[in-house]
């Protein structure tokens, strides 16, 4: 066996500090441009659909990953979904405790095979269940920038809205 000693204090061996100075500017891509513009301007989700494989993509893709067909017809699929699975997160990324736990869920958008990962708002950890219907809650139109955080989260379904 190796001679390595068991070190439980990670800062015990002598160390020096480093960091990597990198920043990024990402493009949305062709499908992403349409998806996020629909969120920003209309407060709705778009999908693409492959008729050969009978599968729909949310967020949309410009190709079908099964058959590689080009997909260029965008369908408004509304903002409702149901909870495929969820977790209640108690920790921040650095290992510290969150002030209040946050619920994160995988939401399957109604009528599609696609889904989004996002926060759940307005439903408590004791009330939430798999299969529960939810709908997207957006920031006010004027404050949207065309990004995933234009969606505040998914909350209970209210009457009237699609």
């Amino acid at each position: 066996m190796a001679i390595t000693e068991k070190i439980t204090n990670t800062m015990k061996p002598t160390f020096w500090e480093g960091h990597i100075p990198v920043n990024y500017v990402y493009t949305y891509g062709h499908a992403g441009e349409k998806f996020f513009r629909a969120i920003k301007d209309k407060g709705t989700f778009l999908a693409t659909y492959c008729s050969a494989c009978d599968i729909s993509y949310v967020p949309p893709k410009i190709y079908c990953d099964r058959c590689f067909t080009k997909l260029d017809r965008y369908i408004d699929v509304g903002t409702r979904g149901f909870i495929e699975t969820f977790t209640v997160s108690f920790m921040n990324m650095d290992g510290s405790r969150k002030e209040r736990p946050r619920i994160l869920a995988m939401i399957r958008i109604v009528g599609t095979d696609g889904g989004l990962i996002h926060y759940i708002e307005g439903i408590g950890p004791d009330e939430i269940a798999l299969g529960m219907p939810v709908q997207a809650v957006f920031k006010p139109k004027g404050k949207r920038t065309g990004a995933i955080d234009d969606i505040i989260g998914f909350g209970p379904v209210t009457r009237g809205r699609k």
Binding site: A2, T4, E5, K6, I7, T8, N9, T10, K12, P13
Partner: peptide, 10 residues
């Protein structure tokens, strides 16, 4: 195989 440890000197 070496020991698996949280923090190796190596």
């Amino acid at each position: 195989i070496t020991k698996f440890v949280r923090r190796a000197q190596e």
